[in-house]
Computed example of a mutant assay.
Amino acid sequence: MTPYEVRRLTPDDIALMHAMLHMFGAAFDDVPTYSGHQPDTGYLAQLLANPGFVAVAALDRLEPVGGLAAYVLPKFEQARKEIYIYDLAVKQTHRRRGIATALINELKRIASEIGAYVIYVQADYGDDPAVALYTKLGVREDVMHFDIEPEPPPG
């Protein structure tokens, strides 16, 4: 059990979402992507109000020290949902304290609440801490991942 507050962010948590984005940038060593062009308040409020998006933060005195961003995907073959964890990070100084597990446990609670039947995530080869965490919490499937570029805009 972590001593941190772990909770889903709401449209009232815009400042926390901005801070969580900065934390992601530092944790992933990719500050330009997460801090260079952050969405404005209206965009983030709309995103956090969207039931298809889930942001969970681990807070240490209102400072995000861990965060998770996930998408709820309605399925077509059955009337059910699945959740894809898009990003999960813990601040370097707070790792190995159960924060990532607490974030996923909160997402599991949310998944149950909304009727999702599975949560899935991908990890990169060589990211041993992530692979160890996900192995502890789930069943590993070896799959191939492909990025497909969209068509360029007309004109």
Rank of each mutant, 00 (worst) to 15 (best):
P3N: 10
Y4W: 09
E5L: 15
E5A: 15
E5W: 12
R7Q: 02
R8G: 11
R8L: 13
L9S: 11
A15K: 14
A15L: 12
M23Y: 01
D30F: 07
T33W: 10
Y34Q: 00
Y34L: 08
G36V: 10
G36I: 07
G36E: 03
Q38R: 04
P39G: 06
T41M: 00
G42N: 11
G42A: 04
Y43A: 04
L47A: 06
L48S: 05
P51R: 07
G52Y: 14
F53Y: 15
F53E: 04
V56Q: 04
D60Q: 11
V65Q: 05
V65H: 08
G66H: 04
G67T: 06
A69K: 10
A70V: 09
Y71F: 13
V72G: 07
V72H: 05
L73T: 06
F76C: 08
Q78K: 10
R80I: 06
I83E: 01
Y84G: 09
Y84A: 07
I85A: 04
I85R: 01
Y86E: 09
D87T: 03
T93N: 10
H94G: 12
I99M: 06
A100R: 03
A102V: 07
A102S: 11
L103T: 05
I104F: 04
L107N: 00
I110N: 00
A111F: 09
A111P: 12
A116Y: 02
I119F: 10
I119E: 00
Y120C: 00
V121T: 05
V121S: 01
A123Q: 07
Y125C: 08
G126C: 03
D127P: 03
V131H: 03
Y134N: 00
Y134R: 01
T135G: 13
G138D: 03
E141D: 04
D142I: 15
D142K: 14
V143I: 13
M144G: 09
H145G: 02
I148E: 02
E149A: 15
E149L: 03
P150Q: 13
P152G: 02
P152A: 03
P153V: 06
